[in-house]
């Protein structure tokens, strides 16, 4: 009985992260890095992986320390913890995956101020036990990564004629540079969020 209960919560955490509370498409968090780095699928995977890593560890530590962090300085404490893990990611990427570090550039250190991480710290990790917090970090990170990959696949395919760096469009396809430029980022993200809102509204109508 108890096991089934746990299973349900795990399922809910993942459904929230990937669908119902998807950080990008539903909560509309972390727009800066979403727009900036979604020009190639490789970048999206790198950014998604980095954010997931930071989310899991910051959620874990904030959850473990939640009774030691006075509420008056909690935001400052969260930022210090998050900044620590972000710097670790930055150094590791520079040492072992330099091409990714170069193409993500300043958006790696800027994960510190990515609203997703602070929002999960404040609304989940500070109120829950370590294990669910880690799962929440993983689920939200995956949701962020999946959304990023969808956006970047569209931009890379039409803007560059490639996917993961491999040419997939037929020869003679002339890439629509607009899609990969900042303008395309705004337009495609806007259209995708509208699509998600349309689906959600339709689902809600059916349920009613």
């Amino acid at each position: 009985m108890k096991k089934e209960n746990e299973k349900l919560t795990v399922g809910k955490i993942f459904r929230d992260g990937l669908l119902d509370q998807n950080p990008i498409f539903v909560q509309l968090l972390g727009m800066c890095s979403t727009l900036a780095i979604s020009t190639s699928v490789i970048n999206a995977l790198g950014m998604g992986g980095s954010v997931t890593f930071v989310l899991i560890l910051s959620n874990l530590f904030i959850s473990v320390l939640r009774n030691l962090i006075p509420s008056k300085i909690r935001i400052a404490s969260y930022i210090v913890i998050i900044a620590g893990f972000v710097t670790v990611v930055d150094m590791v990427l520079q040492a072992y995956i330099p091409s990714l570090a170069a193409s993500l550039g300043l958006f790696i250190p800027l994960i510190v101020v990515n609203c997703i991480i602070l929002a999960r710290a404040e609304s989940f990790a500070s109120k829950n036990k370590p294990l669910p917090s880690v799962l929440d970090g993983l689920a939200m990170g995956l949701g962020f990564t999946v959304a990023l990959v969808i956006i970047s696949a569209i931009r890379e395919l039409f803007g560059n004629g490639t996917l993961l760096g491999f040419a997939v469009m037929p020869e003679g396809y002339s890439p629509a540079v607009l899609v990969i430029s900042p303008v395309g980022g705004f337009l495609i993200l806007g259209a995708l969020i509208a699509l998600v809102q349309w689906f959600r509204a339709r689902k809600k109508d059916k349920e009613d």
Binding site: T39, A102, G105, L106, G159, V177, L178, I180, S181, P182, G184
Partner: peptide, 8 residues
């Protein structure tokens, strides 16, 4: 090393 904007 460069940090130019993609597409521009």
């Amino acid at each position: 090393s460069q940090t130019e904007t993609p597409g521009i």
